[in-house]
Amino acid sequence: MNLRRILMGMCTGAFVGFGVFTIWPSSLARWNWLGGWLAAGIIITTGWLVNHYAGSIPNKGGGAWVDMALSVWLSALLGGTVVLDPVKGLVRGAYGILHGANLGGALMTIFLQLVGATLAGYLLYAARRSDV
């Protein structure tokens, strides 16, 4: 456990989490679905460059890969989303658990996302095993 690496990963993880849920809804509000597509390239790319290309999140070869997506998901769940609306200015898009939003409403979505992701994980594992 290297505390300084964890602290650095925490800062850059928060950067991508905050960035995604401010830039993405704002870009979507301004340019509609094309804005949503562009937002991915703007913030996910920058987040990936810092967190994984430069390696700020301390993944090592032997351990199971922890993606910056963990920070991204948790950020919105806890803090909701913020929209820079072209007309109304800076407004709230969604509320998070920190605002008192009820986690129960999201549980079914979370469960089914995990079911799908587990299936995908198995498929990836099977694909990697077969091409060696």
Partner: peptide, 19 residues
């Protein structure tokens, strides 16, 4: 009171982690 938002990022993290 819309929320909390469960982003598709959860699937990305979990799928790669489980694999």
């Amino acid at each position: 009171l819309p929320g909390p938002w469960s982003d598709m990022a959860l699937a990305a993290f979990w799928g790669l982690f489980v694999a």
